[in-house]
Amino acid sequence: MAAISEEMVLLLALIALTILLSMGVLLARDNFFSAMYMSATLIMVASIYAFFGIQPLFILIIFIFVGVTGIVTVALAATFRSEPEKASPGFWGPLALTTALIVAISLSTSLRHHPESGMGVIQFELGGFLGNPGYILLIISLTSLGILLMLSVLKMIGGVDECR
């Protein structure tokens, strides 16, 4: 049996920590702690990107997803701190099992028929990405989308004065 490399051990530790923190989201009774666990999980997801050498996405996930959305969610959960009502998830077992089975079958089929698919060395260069004008246009369009959406949201809420 091939020995597992140190890098693989580190990756498995990162993945285990991510799953443990996400379990906190499910098990925490208070929404505030649930939101904190969610932010920590997303930081671990970003760390996995950093582990593979994709630092630009690490920064984007931390800044946009954790820094903006995550913090606003934490603030929202801290403001509305009522005891959440729990529902009884009746049929989740068979549904989860079926989904796991579908994922396992598709993964094994993919590995059997396309053994090299998704495997290899990650060689991402931010310079190569930004050198393409099409991608610059994409970034500008997405930023405009975000600004327009936020303006619409402000209008929906009733303006800045209403938020005070």
Partner: peptide, 28 residues
Amino acid sequence: VLLLIGYLTVISSKDLIRVLISLELMFG
């Protein structure tokens, strides 16, 4: 597993903030 935990969080609570949190987890 992250998707599954997010899904379980949605169906095990009756709170909109919990739904939002689990959506973010699913995006992760």
